[in-house]
Nucleic acid binder design. Structure first.
Lengths: 151, 151
DNA sequence: TTGGTTGCAAAATGTTTGCATGACC
DNA sequence: GGTCATGCAAACATTTTGCAACCAA
């Protein structure tokens, strides 16, 4: 899944990225790595599926997934959002630079957008919202992706 | 609720705005008027509550709300979205110019933003998404509203 | 009159919680 | 060894569906 030429092994990713104050369990580590290697936000169900397809012998509970996503969110390394095309929540690791997605309204594919077109917009918005302290924003571009268009 | 100086009465709103091909029932009309007079997107539960507080003698079923919101969506006069701060879907009438909201992350107040800062951004985004046909976008500004800040 | 719409109840999702067992430090 | 995390099951919330009675055209 990783796009790096020299794939970093899981141990060193964990060593480098693990949040302090969070006990390591193999379930947590597995969930973290799935998020780490995904280039799009995942639903709890998608994470659950990936867990079980990676290690069918292991047992994972749905509640474990939810509880750990919440735990990660609390220590600030995971963001929970809801895309406007879906009814359920999706989760992703907070990256140094935040991300936006182009969402295909047909296949629901989520394509990360490299640039954030909003950095200098905040000021303009600020004028129309006196007193409102902007802490962030969420942007989705909706449309039909290349693959769906050619069907 | 209406901000107009000469409040338009319900009958003429319905006569002017009712979508063709949709049978009129008093439940549908009530739901439509609630959406019409709201300046923020509403959840199915909020619409249901408003229905029953407006006319406590009448009976409305939750399923009626959902079915009619879907019916309105199908004929293209209602938009269903999910705000990133909430888990459930919200609905609003499509207005001639679409709207964005500033969402307070504390009280979840939704403040409509007058301008859409994205019209000329689409082009810039288009470059980074070859083949992706942009049909729309969804933007939320997150932050703390004036009221919450002064608590 | 007749087909679409409603209310009710039940099912289907998605998410959260209680509790006893089990694993990490 | 004590504490916190897990699995399981049950609770909960939101949304969808089946069906008989009902209403608008």
């Amino acid at each position: 899944m990783s796009c790096k030429i020299h794939a970093e092994n899981s141990d060193s990713i964990i060593e480098r990225c693990w949040p302090s104050g969070v006990k390591k369990t193999h379930q947590r580590i597995d969930i973290f790595l799935i998020l780490y290697h995904s280039d799009e936000p995942l639903s709890a169900a998608e994470i659950f599926d990936k867990l079980n397809q990676k290690a069918p012998k292991e047992k994972y509970a749905f509640s474990t997934v939810y509880r750990n996503l919440l735990a990660f969110e609390k220590v600030g390394i995971v963001t929970k959002t809801t895309l406007s095309t879906e009814d359920n929540a999706v989760y992703e690791l907070k990256k140094s630079s935040h991300k936006h997605y182009a969402v295909c309204t047909k296949c629901h594919r989520k394509i990360p957008i490299k640039t954030c077109p909003l950095h200098d917009i905040s000021a303009a918005v600020k004028d129309s919202l006196p007193g409102f302290e902007i802490t962030g924003h969420q942007l989705e571009i909706l449309g039909i992706c290349n693959e769906c268009k050619n069907k």
